[in-house]
Write a protein that binds this DNA or RNA. Structure first.
Lengths: 200, 200
DNA sequence: CTTACAAATGAACGATGTTCAATTAATGTC
DNA sequence: GACATTAATTGAACATCGTTCATTTGTAAG
């Protein structure tokens, strides 16, 4: 069939995105394939390439949605916290909870390497920057006399750290069982780092 | 040809391992393929499967060597450091330098996910544990009255953190340019964490 | 009813990991 | 030296993968 027009280009995009996310959630990121996505929405491979440049493009848009959800969770956690260091601890908690609840989609954001021949678009990079900005904001009230650059650096160090614990724990390399232990590690990292950062 | 016996099984293993490492160093881990390795040592695919279970097995052994080298560097750094916190800072520096100097092999250790249907062998897991043990040892003199469990937890939090900075920086997600900036982040994380850890 | 257009197809290409019957070189036996 | 035995090596085969694009086919306009 051709020109079925059962669905508009935009509908097709959304269907493909949803189907692909479903596959990733269920089977992980190695389970994703163009033919599987196409079959799931009742079309063939070729159609997928009418709507996405390639698989990397599809993955980029899935990751964008994941980053949006993560950012939303992190943002809303900042409404219900008492003091500054509590706010940062909650950011960490939310981050770990998110990764634990949705490991496959979360892993795809940070483990998939996009093919080198064209860089990720600016709007995508911005979604990652935005996450660090949240940490930077949380750090500000604790920063005392520190310069902007020092705060930026601290937010990167701290959040890189939280991320690392998260990655290693989910990969099983930390010899740690259960989310609660990972939460403990994260809290330890954040609270000790903050003690050092605010100390002098 | 058959029964050429140009090379023993063990020689074949070593040749394949060396060739595969060369490919990974040059082209990164996605450039690795069974046929390429086989061609590089002047044999065909089939021969490779006489000597390694599968590609995961090959990768496992490359990673093992990488982990051994990393462990050696980290260990030898501990001979030339003054006080305890300096020792830990040097561990971090060595870790970052190693990853920066050999990004492809280092990335393969931490980014390749082995197929789930059989767990990584104990001797491999031990090589990762051993790395954390080094941090634990370095932390001990600074631990004061803390329990073994607290020290173990601290070493995991701290090293997970260093690892996270390293991963994100190499992936370009930290918006940071050059090794030196990554070193700065790592030093910030370690020294601030230690201040908190030893503080009270 | 015919023409024109564009949406959707699916065969084709060059890769991939993995297997295993077939081939072939070295060795042991007479 | 010739033959049989044995095991080392092969490479075609299979099922998958991402990607492309000439071809088909449904729809709408003239």
């Amino acid at each position: 069939m051709a020109r079925r027009s059962d669905h508009s280009r935009e509908e097709l995009r959304k269907m493909a995105l949803a189907a692909a996310e479903h596959i990733v959630v269920e089977q992980g990121y190695e389970g994703l394939s163009a033919r599987k996505v196409a079959a799931a929405i009742g079309y063939t491979v070729g159609t997928l390439y009418l709507v996405f440049e390639n698989l990397d493009d599809l993955i980029l848009h899935i990751n964008a949605r994941t980053l949006d959800r993560l950012h939303a969770r992190m943002t809303e956690s900042q409404a219900h916290c008492t003091d500054a260091s509590d706010c940062l601890l909650q950011l960490g908690q939310v981050y770990i909870r998110f990764a634990d609840a949705d490991p496959h989609r979360w892993a795809m954001v940070f483990e998939h390497r996009f093919s080198g021949d064209q860089a990720v678009p600016a709007w995508y990079q911005e979604k990652i920057t935005r996450m660090f900005a949240l940490v930077e904001e949380g750090l500000e009230p604790l920063a005392g006399h520190r310069t902007r650059d020092e705060i930026t650096q601290a937010s990167r160090a701290l959040w890189g750290g939280v991320h690392g614990i998260c990655i290693l724990a989910l990969a099983g390399s930390l010899g740690v069982a259960g989310v609660d232990s990972v939460q403990d590690l994260t809290q330890s990292l954040i609270s000790n780092y903050l003690k050092g950062f605010t100390g002098n």
